[in-house]
Write a protein that binds this DNA or RNA. Structure first.
Lengths: 221, 221
DNA sequence: TTGGTCCATATTGGATCCGATGCCATGACC
DNA sequence: GGTCATGGCATCGGATCCAATATGGACCAA
């Protein structure tokens, strides 16, 4: 897993674009100019096109023929459908996951601490990425590999908007500790081997997010 | 929707390959030789590659770098995960679907009759395609467009194996009428506006399919 | 000024070309 | 005789080139 992965250009480009969207460099509605990104990522246009095909099939970007690919805009109805699906699928992962070894739990806690550090260092993007990593690690504890893949995909669909939430400092510290206290509750539940608590920890911020989208401070549509 | 769609080559290739997989021309494990399919579909290799990227991201084909793309093999565990997800998502569609107008229902029934005709004419592939069309039409009655998209994707993941089931004449006529009687029950439920019956009609053949996969007459792994 | 047409330019879509990689068979060496 | 190295072949991965399409602005006319 470590080291220089022997992977294709298209693969690398895909993750780069995903990250750019996650970080808000590409915002919903923005067109992905192929030549520009080819230059930035030091590849030809072809891997960009292939990556866009992938992201398009995931629904993260939409394609108007002969015009280009733009980052998908989701309306509130679509957003809530994505949450609906996660609400249905995630419990299955939690039901089936194996409990992590001490060592694995410690690694997770390190990620959590890194996330808090990133937060105090005014690096919300990094914090967001670390939160994401934590979630993914927890998902990976379930043997339902196909379901895990789907749930991760669903996460990525809302990434473009998650960024906007994370840019809003109000949201970090909500009534119940906001997004920061979230991983703490997850670790607790994992340590106590309490599936119900884990479920609660995961669902807790659904409501906050959806509330945010129902009353968006950013330009709608 | 009618007429010759002015669409990209990659798009066309994607659907062609999907259909080839559905029809069993490409079976699980088979490699998709790019040059060969480029020649067959009268395009260059590039649209083939792009289509394979799409299908790969959907999980229908898997990609070993520098070796090629092969039709995904699913083991029983993965197959049952796909059914699990459909069992979770489909009820949401049924809960939210609007009841079709008479005219729409009649169109559906025509498809059903066409499917039965195809069956008596020993054309299981066409029958299978028609069954698929019926399901999709019903899904489209739900306003949950994103969920609909996901469920359709899940269907396509099991297409390669569905073909094998349909090739087995035993399966057409099971204890409860088998797959043939299925759309009849769906139409009845739609006509009676009975969501529970509709749900039952949809889930009825899950069990049959899974049973089939648990005791596969085809070479496993 | 406003509306429309036409042309220049930017950008995408598709084809071809070439280098890289893996696979398989042949043959040399142990 | 077995095993490992080497070379050829098939196929893929990436870059470049050219055609098709859309966009935006200038120019002209009403």
């Amino acid at each position: 897993m470590a080291g220089v992965h022997k992977t294709n250009a298209a693969e690398r480009v895909t993750t780069s674009l995903r990250k750019a969207i996650l970080r808000g460099e590409l915002r919903p509605g923005d067109y992905v100019r192929q030549e520009k990104w080819a230059a930035r990522l030091r590849v030809s246009r072809l891997p960009i096109r292939e990556a866009l095909k992938i992201l398009g099939s995931e629904g993260l970007v939409v394609h108007d023929p002969n015009k280009g690919y733009s980052v998908a805009k989701l309306d509130v109805a679509e957003m809530s459908q994505i949450y609906l699906m996660r609400r249905l699928l995630e419990p299955e992962l939690i039901k089936t996951l194996r409990w992590p070894a001490h060592r694995e739990l410690d690694q997770l806690k390190e990620l959590g601490e890194a996330a808090e550090r990133a937060l105090t260092e005014q690096d919300p993007v990094r914090c967001m990425e670390l939160e994401r990593t934590i979630d993914y690690r927890v998902y990976d504890l379930s043997p339902l590999n196909v379901v895990v893949r789907e749930v991760k995909r669903l996460w990525e669909l809302i990434d473009p908007y998650r960024f906007l939430v994370f840019s809003d400092p109000e949201r970090f510290y909500g009534p119940d500790g906001g997004l920061v206290a979230r991983h703490g509750r997850i670790f607790e539940a994992l340590g106590a081997r309490d599936r119900d608590a884990l479920h609660a920890a995961f669902t807790r911020n659904y409501e906050a997010m959806m509330e945010y989208f129902r009353h968006p401070p950013f330009a709608g549509s």
